[in-house]
Every structure is written in C-alpha cells, then in structure tokens.
Write a protein that binds this DNA or RNA. Structure first.
Length: 712
DNA sequence: GCCTCTGGATTTTTT
DNA sequence: ATCCAGAGGC
C-alpha cells in the first residue's frame, strides 16, 4: 500500500521532500494536516526514521493530540515515542530535564498571565511606581514582547530610549528577580530560557540536536522570534526543518507572532524547497471567492492562487437584524430550520464572534430555545478562582518558594493572616535575607524569634505546619489523595460550600479532581509534576468536544484550524469586526481582515454574515455601521436579508397563543403565577415578553410557548 | 482582621 | 455589566 496514495501532486511533493529545509505554504482547506501526517508516516515507513527522532510542534495541545491520533491510524501504532506538542510544552519538558544548568530548580513553577500581572503589581509597589500613572498591563505587554524577541532585562535597559522604556527596564529587572526568588517562569520564559539554555550549554543542545533528525513546525505564521530561534537551534545540525504556514491566516501579532519568520526562513535556508498547496477541498466556490475578495484588499500581502473544484453552492447570506437579541434569535432560528430540513445536525454548525463578550447574548438564545451548544473559551476553567486556589495549594506544596501561590492562599479560607501580618513577615524575612517560606519555618520553630505579634505568629505557624504535613504526605500519595487532603486540611471545602454560588464552585473542584485522577497512578513526585504542568499549559480549545451533537460557539481566533458545514459570523460591524482598537493602525486593520478571512474560510457549505443595527457595550447601546469587509464581497455572491424592516417598529399586535399583550398588562402563568408585563419585543413571527412575577422575579418568555393568560 | 459598600475604571484576540 | 481598590464599620 502506498502511503502517499490520494495526495495531489503538490501534496505529494511536500510529503516526499524529507531531506533539507522545506517551506509549505498551505491555504485554508488545502489538506495541510493530511500532508503533515502523511509526510511523517512516510518518514517512518518509507525512509525508515525511528519515530523517537522526529519532533513536531503544533499551536495547541489539541492539534498535537489529533496529529498523534491520525498517525496512530496511518502507522498502526508505534507512535508513542514521537514527540508532538506545543512549543511551550516542549520547552517545559526540556527545562524540567536540563534547566539546572541555568540554575533552575526542576520544580520550577509556571506562572500564567494572571500570576504574572500580580507579580508586576508587586514590582511596581516595591519600586514605588504609581500604577495609576503606569498601568501594570502596559508593563506586562512590554515585557512579554521583549521576551518574545529574546531581549533580556539587561538588553532592554541597554536599548531603552524613552523615559517610559527606562521605567519598563527597571520593572522588567525587578520582576525577573521576583520570578527568580519564586523559582518560577512565565509563559514567555519557557521559550526564552530554553533558547538560552541551548545557547549557553552546547552540550545540552547537542543532545537534542542529535536526537531529533527531523523537525516540523505547524502554524509557522503565528510563531514569534524566540520560537524561531529555538527551531533554528534544534535544526542546526541536520537542517531537516519543515515549516507549514499561511501568511493570510496570521492573526496573532498581538501575541508577538512575527511574519518576518517566514521571510527569514527563506533567507536562513536559501536551499529550502517551497511548496504551495493551492487546491481547496473544503469550501464552495462562492465562499472561497468571497473570502478571497475580503483578504485581497490587504496591501502587505503576497497573492496566491487558491482554487477549488467544489460546486458553486448556495449564496452567502448577509443578514441584518435590529438588536443583539434578534441577532441571536436569528442564528438559533436558522439552525433550527436547517435541522428541520434534515440538512444539518447541531454539530455541523458553528457561531463565531470577535470578542468573548458576544457569546452572552447568543447563549441566552440557545438556552431559551433549549438548543444544545458548547461555548469554547470564555471564563476559562483554569482561571476560575476556586480552581486557581486549589492549584495554588498544590503548587506551594510542590515548590515552597512560589511566592505568588503563597500569597494567594495563605489566608484563603480566612485564618487570621491579613495584609498587615504578611507585610511584617515580608519585612522581617527581607531583613534576614531569607526567602519568605524559610522565614515562616524559622518562625514556626521559635515563635519568639520574630517581631510579630503572638496572634499573628500563631496563625502563621499553624499555616506552616499544615503545609509541611501536606508536603510530607505528597511524598507518598497520589495526586487525588493529596487533593483531598488539601481540601480537608485547609477547610477549603466548607469555605467553598458556604459561599453563595458554592455548589457550582464545588462542582468545578470535583471536575478538577476528575482531571487529577488521570495522574493518580504515577509515582509521587512525577504525578504532581505532570499534573501541574498539564493544568498550566492547558488551552481552551483542548477541551472541545467534537463527538457530541452540539452547536459550537467560538471566537474567530480559536476557530483557526477548524471547519464546519455551516458557519455564522456575528457582529459584522465597524468597531466589532474590525475591532475599534485597530482603527488607527493599518497593520492591525490588515490583521482584522485576515481574521475575517479565517472565519469565512472555516465554512464548507453555508456562510452567514450577521450584523445588528444596535449593540450594547458596557451598559450603553450604540449603533454601528456595517463592517467594511461586507462591502468587499461581490453582490452576486450574496443574498441579503433585513429582518428589522422599518426598524424601531411599534410592537405589532401578534396572535401567538391567542393572547395579545403589551407593557403593563397583568398576566397569569401556570408555573410562575401572577405577574406584570414589562416589555414585548417582536421576534420573527413571535414575541418575547418580559414579565415580573410576584415572588419569582423577572422572566423572559416566548409568547407562543409560555401559556400566558391575561388577567384583567 | 474581616466584611461590605462605593466609585472608578475597563475589555480583543490566548500559549 | 463586571471587576477591582480603597474606605469604613464591626
């Protein structure tokens, strides 16, 4: 059997070119994933490369998992030694193994951006910088951007030109010191330190270089300078580096992705073969043409020749609604009618939006109609307070120098250790030149050693001995028992349950416990290591369920790499898509355009572009003109529908349910009892009625379904 | 030290 | 609308 069977000539060329550098420029829907997996299968089966000598880097863990699964099928097993993962995960593992050469503890903590921001705030405090004048976030992004380009704090100080940059360099330096004291790395450090490790320790680099004969990098257009440096280091010996990307789908420049990488690749590897994948197998001609018209307006762009053999397909639908809720109603109603026609299942449909906040109105509509859906992203599981708290306990057990985790949970649940006590402890520790946790230890051993009050000292000593006991247990227990012990010893369970939304929070903790169970059987230090690494590097798309029959609600960014027969892009308005923040920067505006292109090219068969006349934002409501991107789509590809007709139309007196209501009417409901109508909004051929029920509260109901009767 | 209230800012996208 | 810091009462 031929592994390359069924590939078109360009795909075949890409898969067969196994020696030397290779750049694959792959348009949307061009079978990129297929090429990558077949290329790897070819390497193993035909060229005879041992899978453990191949490394593949993907953008998300989910992409990594999929690649592994597909290869499993192609190779019939034998993929367990293949290295597939994100840059971050790969670097985390490298540093865990060899980071000691840099003076890094193998138990280093990983700080996410919330932790990072906290540490920056502390830096500002230490340095006496006013966070009102200099927003902490501006330092966060400046430092992240520097680290993404391999610029250290010393390097930053050197090239600081403005006064602000000078301030940043001081914050950067202090922030790094604090990280160091905590034995912690932020996300950007994972990449930069790994690269520094390679740079300063050729013996370590040599080990990885010799092991990996072949390196493959997916989504190359979204890599930053530091990631490229890493790739170059790893590939320097064998020069078998294959990168795959599409400049038109570059949408992460705000995360410091740098399109120069693609240009640099051709400069650094002049002998590189370049393969263009230009046949699209995903979308209809109509969709592809429309998307092309949108993106080709960009000036900073290389033209390509994407084409498809697929049929014309139905026209795009551009739909104009009056309000956000009507927009959502339309989406749900339209999906419902596609379902009724037997054309699609829920899982064939996706709704995409620019900002997470937009998912709310949509969710309301889905809930009200009882249509099954899943939201990707939004309030992320691992950033929920209770989850971060519990993980902070585990992180502190694992690495007692982790000052961010210590500060987070030392008084959660409240145990009499307030800010003042912590300040005093800090002061005392600093005076002795001790890390916080060591000071805590000394205090616990001899209460009179510290200048702190007896009450505070007592509380701190209690906390210390609890943590020590947990740490002791962690040496012989699995992750699940450890978690249970933490919840028990800290009193976190009772603390959570007595909160107003305690039941939900507790459910989340139980879910975390379920995740921990996957690490339960590993022997003590390793289980905790991998669990903590897993939760730190987890991303939202990772949890997406593709098997359940649900409609997917997702941001345009997260939708990259996915495809659906039916796609709705909502909020096609100036200020939303393109986002208002891009208005004054042409480069950012081009990125918005690419983002729109990415969204459109997710669609296989039907594409809806929906906008609303009015949209609520931070309390107020405003009216946005239609997105400029709509104007670039040729009219012949589009069917436009306006649902609002003459807009602020007076509530037509409809007939649904034989009842006829307006604001102020008194009504009766079988379940909610007596109430008063607050408002009626026409919704397609129905009415949405808001009613305040006595003793029940406000409910939104659909007139046709609600069985309301009038009480005169 | 702990809890609640108020006013002010604040939202793009995420490994 | 929602989150956060700071003030003030217990």
């Amino acid at each position: 059997m031929d592994i390359l069977e069924g590939l078109n000539p360009a795909q075949r060329e890409a898969a067969e070119t196994t020696e030397g550098p290779l750049l694959i420029l792959a348009g949307p829907g061009s079978g990129k994933t297929r090429v990558i997996t077949h290329r790897m299968a070819y390497l193993v089966r035909v060229v005879g490369i041992n899978p453990r000598r191949i490394m593949a880097v993907t953008f998300t863990n989910k992409a990594a998992r999929e690649m592994r699964e597909r290869l499993q099928v192609l190779l019939a097993g034998s993929v367990e030694h293949l290295s597939v993962g994100t840059f971050h995960a790969a670097c985390a593992a490298i540093l865990r193994r060899d980071g000691e050469a840099l003076g890094l503890s193998p138990r280093y903590a990983i700080y996410d951006d919330e932790d990072q921001l906290g540490l920056i705030k502390r830096s500002l405090q230490d340095l006496g910088i006013d966070p009102k004048r200099y927003p902490p976030r501006s330092f966060q992004s400046a430092i992240s951007s520097a680290k993404s380009q391999m610029i250290t704090s010393a390097g930053f100080a050197q090239r600081a030109r403005s006064y602000f940059e000078e301030v940043v360099s001081r914050v950067y330096r202090h922030y790094d010191t604090l990280l160091d004291q905590s034995q912690a790395l932020d996300f950007d450090d994972l990449l930069m330190k790994a690269s520094q490790l390679f740079q300063n320790h050729p013996d370590v680099l040599e080990k990885y270089q010799s092991r990996y004969l072949h390196l493959l990098i997916d989504e190359f257009q979204d890599t930053n300078i530091t990631q490229y440096a890493l790739a170059q280091q790893m590939a320097a010996k064998h020069r078998n580096i294959c990168v795959v990307g599409d400049p038109d789908q570059s949408i992460y420049s705000w995360r410091n992705a740098d399109l120069r990488n693609i240009l640099n690749f051709e400069r650094d590897y002049p002998e590189a073969r370049v393969v263009f994948l230009e046949q699209n197998y995903r979308s209809t001609k109509t969709i592809l043409e429309a998307a092309h018209q949108v993106v080709s307006v960009n000036r900073d762009r290389k033209e390509n020749a994407l084409w498809t053999d697929n049929e014309e397909g139905p026209p795009l639908r551009v739909v104009e609604t009056f309000s956000e809720s009507e927009e959502s109603q339309f989406v749900v109603g339209e999906i419902d009618s596609l379902l009724r026609q037997g054309e699609s299942r829920h899982m064939d449909c996706a709704v995409m939006y620019r900002t997470n906040a937009q998912s709310r109105a949509l969710e309301e509509a889905f809930v009200r109609y009882g249509m099954p859906y899943q939201v990707i992203g939004g309030v992320r599981f691992y950033s929920r307070r209770e989850i971060k708290d519990v993980i902070a306990y585990l992180k502190l057990i694992y690495n007692p120098w982790d000052s961010v985790s210590l500060a987070r949970i030392v008084n959660v649940p409240p145990r009499g250790i307030g800010q003042k006590t912590m300040d005093e402890l800090q002061q005392w520790a600093k005076g002795l030149g001790l890390p916080l946790y060591t000071a805590l230890q000394r205090l616990a051993e001899d209460r009179s050693a510290s200048p702190l009050g007896a009450r505070s000292a007592q509380a701190l000593a209690g906390f210390y001995s609890m943590m020590e006991e947990l740490a002791r247990q962690s040496r012989e227990q699995g992750v699940v028992e450890l978690l249970d012990n933490v919840l028990q010893a800290s009193g976190y369970k009772e603390y959570t349950l007595e909160q107003p939304d305690g039941d939900d929070r507790w459910d989340n903790i139980l879910e975390l416990r379920g995740i921990a169970a996957q690490y339960q059987d590993l022997k003590p230090p390793e289980g905790l290591t991998l669990f903590l690494e897993g939760v730190s590097l987890f991303s939202d798309t990772d949890e997406m369920d593709e098997k359940k029959d649900l409609v997917t609600l997702i941001t345009l960014h997260q939708a990259k790499g996915l495809e659906y027969p039916v796609v709705f892009i909502v909020g096609m308005e100036e200020g939303v898509l393109p986002h208002i923040r891009s208005f004054d920067d042409p480069a950012q505006m081009e990125e918005e355009r690419r983002l729109c292109y990415v969204g459109m090219t997710r669609a296989k068969r039907r594409l809806y572009l929906v906008r609303s006349l009015r949209r609520s934002l931070m309390g107020g409501t405003n009216a946005n003109p239609p997105s400029r991107f709509l104007k670039n789509i040729p009219a012949k590809l589009v069917q436009t529908t306006g649902l609002f007709g003459e807009e602020p139309k007076p509530a037509p007196r409809p007939k649904a349910g034989g009842v006829d209501l307006s604001a102020g009417d008194h009504v009766q409901h079988p379940r909610f009892g007596k109430g008063v109508v607050v408002s009626c909004t026409p919704v397609r051929d129905d009415q949405e009625v808001v009613v305040v029920f006595d003793g029940v509260g406000i409910k939104k109901l659909l007139l046709s379904l609600a069985q309301l009767t009038r009480r005169d």
